[in-house]
């Protein structure tokens, strides 16, 4: 309970810290955000017959936000867009609730330009999510931010649509890497 309080406070700090960013795009992951908001306010009210929403099993539950492991970024941008903040917060909760769990964040970049410079750009994206997690109470030794640069594209076409899919972070947990 005490931990949840700290987490709620940190979440508020995190959201406040992000408020200086430009307005969010219109698209909203509404349903997920609602469930997230209610459980954030009163974690004690989660019904006992349901799966622990921030337990490790939720990582594999397609209905849980924790099964979502990708954070996408705009061109030449390294800030977490509002639509991905609930996802980052959910993962932070799991990590705080399970301090022995470790996470690898793999940043990626689109293919244009130098491989090594793109590796550094992917690193900036991975570190953006890592910083948010630390703000939300995750411990430094739980998270490693690395970059795969342009080496692991999810989409290999040469279109903006494709490149947008490659400007992303992938979140992996212990046992998945």
């Amino acid at each position: 309970m005490h931990q949840s309080l700290v987490l709620a406070t940190l979440t508020a700090v995190f959201l406040a810290a992000c408020s200086s960013q430009p307005p969010a795009p219109e698209q909203k992951p509404a349903a997920v955000e609602e469930r997230n908001a209610s459980s954030m306010a009163e974690p004690g009210l989660v019904k006992s017959e349901k799966m622990d929403p921030y337990g490790l099993a939720a990582l594999k539950d397609p209905k849980s936000i924790l099964s979502k492991r990708n954070v996408f970024f705009d061109f030449d941008q390294y800030v977490i867009k509002d639509e991905f903040k609930p996802l980052v917060e959910a993962h932070a909760r799991l990590m705080v609730a399970n301090p022995s769990v470790k996470m690898l964040i793999q940043g990626n970049a689109d293919e244009r330009g130098s491989r090594e410079y793109n590796l550094a750009l992917g690193q900036k994206r991975a570190e953006a999510v890592k910083k948010a997690l630390l703000l939300l109470g995750v411990k430094e030794e739980q998270v490693e931010a690395v970059s795969l640069g342009e080496e692991k594209p999810r989409c290999t076409g040469q279109t903006e649509e494709c490149w947008a899919q490659n400007r992303r972070d992938d979140i992996l947990y212990t046992g998945e890497y």
Binding site: L104, Q106, L119, E144, V146, S147, L148, G149, E151, K152, L172, Y177
Partner: peptide
């Protein structure tokens, strides 16, 4: 030769 390999899921 020095090089970067991703065999450990990171560079």
């Amino acid at each position: 030769l020095a090089y970067v390999s991703f065999e450990a899921k990171k560079p």
